[in-house]
């Protein structure tokens, strides 16, 4: 009898608790459902489906119509890797990242430090430097194209952009940067310039925020100890903004691997002068494959891109663990 009473006493509160928990769980899921449903439809399902499509040999998106079954394998990956254009895309993408990330980060850091140390016009200059960030990238691409353009040859040049006009002042022959027949190197130069110019504003913003959070007393302490400006910069400023630097570098690497719209902006969706595709990138390749019913190849290519970004980010994370002072 005694036992029964105790058991009853123990059970009752538990049941109440379960009830309460399940009802509050239900409410939680209910409140989450709008976001979850959208995420499942537009993020999780496509993500999983990409893996499925990538590993179905020769998948072309028409499976159900033909009733044909695809075998599971890595044929798509083989096709992608052996494809000549893919290697070009990979080369372009890697080069863009390796060139633009260090240059734009260094420039942004220098500009941020300079902006942080001046008082008059700081707000105004901040706005000026931030303008590229709020401008449409296709529009900037078209302006870059106009700036670098040159139509005609030698004495027959009909029109040329401001860049060729400027280098003409120094007696240098006009260079074909972006028009039909231009070299891969010249194209690359223009694209890198564009990406660096376009990437700097956001980095300045982040780094400036980091710099303004650094306690001024560190600089005063360094000053009293007679620390040189250069040493202060490398031993105090950089370590103290290193979390922001790491953030900026990781995101710009990821952004660099996904580079696409800048090239479309400059060259149109032919991804090169005269639509020859010589500036194509990995994302450009994926987009190219889609209308050609090559969703299998496209999926495989995006998985390769995913893998590369994963590895680079992991390296970034590993390095920043050692070098970043949180």
């Amino acid at each position: 009898m005694n036992n029964a009473v105790t058991i009853k006493k123990q059970k009752k509160p538990k049941a109440v608790k379960d009830n309460f928990e399940s009802s509050s769980n239900f409410k939680a899921w209910l409140y989450l459902s709008p976001a979850l449903i959208l995420l499942i439809i537009f993020s999780f399902y496509p993500l999983i489906n990409t893996f499925r499509m990538a590993f179905l040999n020769g998948y072309n998106g028409l499976a159900i119509v033909g009733g044909e079954k695809f075998t599971i394998g890595i044929e798509n990956f083989k096709t992608v890797i052996n494809y000549v254009d893919f290697k070009l895309c990979l080369k372009n993408t890697l080069l863009l990242c390796v060139v633009t990330v260090p240059i734009s980060t260094t420039l942004a850091l220098l500009i941020a430090v300079a902006l942080n140390s001046i008082k008059p016009l700081q707000k105004f200059l901040q706005t000026v430097f931030f303008l590229p960030y709020v401008t449409n990238s296709i529009a900037i691409g078209m302006v870059f194209n106009a700036m670098f353009t040159r139509v005609g040859l030698g004495d027959l040049i009909q029109t040329q952009g401001i860049i060729n006009n400027i280098i003409g002042i120094f007696g240098i022959e006009p260079i074909n940067f972006v028009n039909v027949g231009s070299s891969w190197g010249a194209n690359m130069f223009v694209v890198c310039t564009y990406i660096i110019w376009n990437a700097i504003p956001f980095k300045i913003l982040v780094l400036l925020g980091g710099l303004q959070n650094v306690n001024k007393q560190y600089y005063e302490a360094a000053k009293i100890d007679g620390t040189s400006k250069i040493r202060t910069f490398f031993r105090i400023t950089i370590p103290l903004v290193s979390p922001m630097l790491a953030y900026v570098i990781i995101t710009s690497f990821i952004g660099g691997f996904k580079e696409y719209s800048s090239i479309v902006g400059i060259f149109g969706d032919g991804m090169g002068p005269g639509s020859n595709g010589q500036m194509n990138t990995l994302v450009g390749y994926v987009y190219n494959m889609l209308p050609k019913s090559n969703s299998g190849n496209a999926s495989a290519a995006s998985l390769i891109l995913f893998g590369i970004i994963l590895i680079v980010t992991a390296i970034n994370g590993y390095v920043s663990k050692k070098k970043v002072h949180y």
């Binding site: 306690n215 560190y218 302490a221 290193s242 002072h325």
Partner: peptide, 24 residues
């Protein structure tokens, strides 16, 4: 000068902090 909130360089060890003025 010893600051009110010490202003020790957070990313350096105690030894590096003390060495800092000497390295200048």
């Amino acid at each position: 000068l010893v600051f009110q909130n010490y202003a020790l360089y957070p990313h350096l060890t105690v030894k590096q902090n003390i060495l800092f003025p000497l390295q200048n």
